[in-house]
Design a protein around this nucleic acid. Structure first.
Lengths: 203, 203
DNA sequence: GCCGTTCCCTAACAAGTGTTTGGTAGGTTA
DNA sequence: TAACCTACCAAACACTTGTTAGGGAACGGC
């Protein structure tokens, strides 16, 4: 049995991550279907066929991009949900965590928003649908708990509220640019302020 | 000069609208680039080549879908903006009008959301960028007027507020289904209530 | 009956697509 | 030095794509 050794020039998994990062950037900008593997290879400074040394298909690229993102997302979410916070504090923590994920995985989030809906129908991407179910359970459950505990309004359609909060947070990935005026935490703070208290001046 | 006469079985412009409607539905569901003209033709009960009797390209289909939608949108918006309402009433009217447009042009709105960003770079779709500029001017201007008149909070980043309101409204097209539990007006009412007053219970 | 128009079909085209195969430069290991 | 592995290139493959050209059936007007 030959001894495992570290690669020589560029470590293999690092190169993989580099390529996935550029692929994600192009996917997010142009859309998955509109992106050719030649374009990705171009951006990475190589030829189309060479990509197939690292990945076995274009589909497996977006697969790895999305699953990596979701894994990290749920790592953060599960931590929040396990902390045993009150409903309002849970929502605050989830929103903050979400903006941190957008900061870290902006291209992946953008891809997820645009493509997950019709990708989820394919068996390979079943985990997208699973994640969405789990997502809804977490957020909707927290909102319902907040209503029964009297911290959230009870005169609103709760599912409408859920979609409202969910969308307001995640669409931010379409305009957010890392290194902008506000940090993820500051954006989260202002968004939470708007969602919880509204934009109208209280009289 | 031959006299113009009405077509015999199905009036031409009506058939055109039918085909555009099915095309819009497929574009919205699958994405523009992922949609083949054969798929559209299939859905319309004809063969791919036959579409080219009505339209001269796939691009001209999405072009007509989007421009038709934007024309009607601005018809409604301009009416609201010309009414001389106060800032809060203007926002309320714009949001309500937006949900009506989503109700009427749901596929077009969904397409606009997904594709306008990278379509706007092409000269043919320059009107998309123009519309977005006009859009921002109208909403942002109204919000700023509201802050100076003391009806909206002044402790928020106004551009963040703008994107917040804009996105919350228009993303609704991704889940909205006509004939659902709520009318567009009812959804607008609840959304406005959340945006203006927040979802937290006032103590 | 004939003509013209409308609307679609058949069949093909050229360009672009994701992917495969065989090869090879250059460093690492033995 | 020889064998080996990594990471890429060069060139082609089969297939799908948007689009076109020619034809024909159904119908109304004359």
């Amino acid at each position: 049995m030959p001894t495992k050794k570290k690669p020589q020039v560029t470590p293999t998994p690092e190169r993989r991550r580099e390529l996935l990062a550029t692929a994600a950037e192009v996917f997010a900008a142009q859309g998955y279907n509109a992106t050719t593997v030649r374009r990705i290879a171009d951006e990475a400074g190589m030829l189309a066929g060479s990509l197939y040394y690292h990945f076995d298909s274009k589909e497996s690229m977006i697969d790895e991009i999305l699953s990596t993102f979701l894994d990290e997302l749920w790592q953060g979410y599960d931590e929040v949900l396990a902390a045993g916070l009150g409903p309002r504090e849970t929502i605050e923590a989830l929103v903050t965590e979400s903006f941190r994920e957008i900061d870290r995985h902006r291209p992946a989030v953008a891809i997820y928003q645009k493509e997950s809906k019709h990708l989820a129908t394919q068996p390979r991407f079943a985990y997208l649908a699973d994640s969405q179910t789990k997502f809804e359970k977490a957020w909707l459950g927290t909102l319902e708990r907040g209503v029964t505990e009297g911290v959230f309004r009870d005169d609103l359609d709760i599912r409408l509220t859920y979609r409202f909060v969910r969308d307001t947070v995640w669409v931010a990935a379409s305009w957010y640019r890392p290194g902008g005026h506000h940090s993820p935490e500051e954006i989260a703070r202002q968004y939470l302020s708007m969602v919880l208290d509204g934009i109208a001046l209280r009289t």
